[in-house]
Design a protein around this nucleic acid. Sequence first.
DNA 1: CATCCACTGGAAGATATGGCGA
DNA 2: TCGCCATATCTTCCAGTGGATG
Length: 399
Amino acid sequence: MGGLFSDVTDTIFLDKEVLEEEYQPDEILEREEEIDEYKSAFKDVLFGRNPSNVMLYGKAGVGKTAVTRYVLDELQTETDQREAADDLYVHRHNCNGDTMFSAVRTLVNGLLPEGSASFPKKGLSTADALEEFYSQLDRLGGTHLVVLDEIDHLQDANELLYELPRARANDHIAEARIGVIGISNNYTFRQRLSAKVQDALKEEEISFSTYDANELRAILHDRAEKALSDDSYSDSAIAKAAAVAGRDTGSARQAIDLLRKGAEIAEDNDEPMVEDDHIGLAREAVKRGRLQDKIEDQSLHARLVLEAVAQLDHVGETPARSKEIMQMYRRVAAKRAEEPLTTLKSIQNHLSDLYMLGFLLRREENEGRKGGSYHEYDLDMDPDVVFEVCDELDAEDAV
DNA sequence: CATCCACTGGAAGATATGGCGA
DNA sequence: TCGCCATATCTTCCAGTGGATG
């Protein structure tokens, strides 16, 4: 009695996992068209024919991964039942920051028989890895679908997308059939592909549009029903979350994050129901959380440079050019007891990265013969968030 | 119109860190 | 434990870049 946790009850949540990122709904709402396109791209698989190669384009949180998982699961159960269909194997791989070699290597490792040694990390060429991959495919036979998520992050995506679909035509494999599914957040990724690859993939592109507020509302209603107890949310709160997410990003992930965070806030305040206000507060919290994660992903010196810009912003000395930022950076590094980088170029590189990642604003200035050309940087966020995260990480390091 | 400033992106070289087999 | 290799990060070097200037 009277224990610290004894008053904690789940007043609002019925099944919180339904609102977590990992949750996989067994029914996909508002993506009928995309599912249809997908379906027709893969119907050949059911008759033991070569699968198509498919490229998916669309922003984050519009259902690319969820739809892929759903469609392939359905395809899997259907092929299991049909005589004419070969065995189906699905290989998923997230290409974040990979080279072609490491991507192929993880694919090989996924195929190797139980207990055998994994493919070596070094010493062998990409061609060796591919060869091994093909021989494993032939050993297993059947139809293999290779899902390459975030393929725009893959260095040699072009080569891989050229190589894999032609494996059978080039006699690298005889028994197995292979289809590639590429998923990209980035519409411009397409232009990075060679004409040949673009041509080969042209027929099978599915682009996912962002969700509008109505679609988001339908999705949120469905999730809320499963995740929250009956009287604990208002329709207007759902509508608000849908409207906010629809306007911001059109992403289901953001909408669901808002609902979850809103429910958490309501629960923390011992209120029985999720209302509009909670969604408003959730919006701030979600935004802040995203930013924090992004900052935490940065390397030490990138963070110090960012903090230097935040400091300059704080005292009203932005926009600033790299030399000024470097002075502040030295002070920040000293405060955090870190050895500062010595060259201006390093700072400039970090600034450039931070700009690309959307932390900073940049303006090109050119004063000709007298001043030369240079960049001026400005902070593109709330400096307090930066200080908060940096203080936190610094405290962790000290332990 | 050539010049020149202050910087740029890119590449190559240098250094640190970590995994892995021997 | 050692050397080998990969990877990430930092430094050094280089050939532009674009607009004010003489």
